[in-house]
Design a protein around this nucleic acid. Sequence first.
DNA 1: CTGTTAGCGCTTTCAC
DNA 2: GTGAAAGCGCTAACAG
Lengths: 327, 327
Amino acid sequence: MPTVKDVARRAGVSVATVSRVLNNSNRVSDKTRQKVLKAIEELGFKPNLLARNFRKDKSNLILVILPTVANVYFARVVKGIEDAARKRGYGILLCTTGNSPEIACEYLKLIERKQVDGAIIASARIDSETIFDLDQKKIVQACEFYPFLDTSCVLIDHKKAFFEIVDYLIKKGKKNILCAIGNEGIPSEEERKEGYRQALEENGLEFSEENVIRCRYGWADIYERLKVLICSGKYDAIACSSDLMAVGAIKAAKESLLKIPDEFAVTGFDNIMISRIYEPSITTVAQPMYEIGEKAAEILIDSLENPDGFSKQKIILPHEIKTRESA
Amino acid sequence: MPTVKDVARRAGVSVATVSRVLNNSNRVSDKTRQKVLKAIEELGFKPNLLARNFRKDKSNLILVILPTVANVYFARVVKGIEDAARKRGYGILLCTTGNSPEIACEYLKLIERKQVDGAIIASARIDSETIFDLDQKKIVQACEFYPFLDTSCVLIDHKKAFFEIVDYLIKKGKKNILCAIGNEGIPSEEERKEGYRQALEENGLEFSEENVIRCRYGWADIYERLKVLICSGKYDAIACSSDLMAVGAIKAAKESLLKIPDEFAVTGFDNIMISRIYEPSITTVAQPMYEIGEKAAEILIDSLENPDGFSKQKIILPHEIKTRESA
DNA sequence: CTGTTAGCGCTTTCAC
DNA sequence: GTGAAAGCGCTAACAG
């Protein structure tokens, strides 16, 4: 494989000149440039990025940490990141943690080791114990914000979103509303629960911890739990923290022969494809997933390329309630 | 940021020794090793991977090219690749092409430029015009095999899979079976069509090109097309090339008030979550997506680390028919 | 077992 | 506008 040296020799110039041509420096005469380009062409020279990156002390890679890619929600975020990154000349190193903070932490070490220039933590679980001293300029949190990691972030207002959807249920006449949210320790889930509480209280309904069901994101867990609860006949709606949960809730309600949404209303969260396709289609909250990824990549790269101008940002993007058949 | 030089000075040894400790060479006395480790600890030294990779002429990265990550099918493949890669000390550079052969081609150049050691093309569309001279040892095709790119590959037997599912429909008494497959030019789709043809012929049914519907993978396209076709009352089943297509077909059949599967049976392909959750649940073909990714990564890395022992492999993994309510 | 040293391929001063 | 030369941090002969 030819190197700059070979190109220089063939073009009858110095390696410095070759390098200038490679980097589009304008301090090269047109004639020389042509000679060099010709030599590159003839030799089939390809710049060795390993060498270039080493020399420039820059990998042009950003690490993307997320729980899983087997989830359309994250897939969109990744796409947003990828597109924005590519526009700026960066590639993305993907790593999924399965929500293990240890794996996330392990991967974050790649920053100091210079394998990557920076990282976007997209909703992946991290914890204050495993996290070590990190350069906040080189990390952006997306979708989720863990305050003990003092970085910029891009996400929606989860409390407000959940408030709105529960408020919507109440305006529809629902009075005994359950809330199904993810396990504890995840900031956005606590925000959502708070939104639920506020919506009830502002409408003069009583909040009770008993009506908050902690469960997994999939449909099976809430399905089982709700099958039991629903028998009591006490409830007329449930606000779920994911669309899959909503599917589970609907399955349970259907089995109990409840009419949806009249006898029992269900809402989801995320607006994944299933929420449109499922029957009944599911009222849910759409997060601007692509835009979250895009924005996260943009502010990360800005900060990477201009660390002196760094200022920590908290960017709240707008969400949207999608009303459909289930509520 | 301290370098090996700093560590060497502090530990009172040479840089070579530091390097040996870093690389777990056993040619270091225990006492020296401890001294070095202590110095590393005290200085908070982190090896610069940019330098190491440059020196070793190896990025320890593999490129993963796929059409989109917003598809659970590919997501599983990616996870298989990621897990296998991590076990061997590799990271994955993700790139989605949106099925543009040009973008795929552009990314493949990263191999020659040494940004990555090799690549897995997972079902991403490529074409013989844009593809340039590639080192076949450094590429593995997964899920899909384009013969003009003469590399190893890992996939299922698409023809056999489709044969089996159509044969299953026939054994269930269906006689006028449609086939919905993706657009032309994709090898696996042509294989599937061939499987459809063979199943009909081996069962004494007539194959007609008219009964092959070319459409997009999503549910909307086939839904529209089938709504018209179904009115004729001529058909009693459809074998689809994706689960989303099957959803579209079922929606159309339901609207025409056909009983599924008695009056109209539908099969899908891929066994994505929707096929289990949807009502009716969908009979489909499960591809071992995770295993395809895993195996692809393994044989790629084997070939990368032992290029002399290279032998091109075509690995066919077993699929599985999942019979459910729709057929 | 350990140290000395060359050099990976490229970019970037610094002269001219 | 161009060239000479230093050097990024690390590894790997080679010598001892």
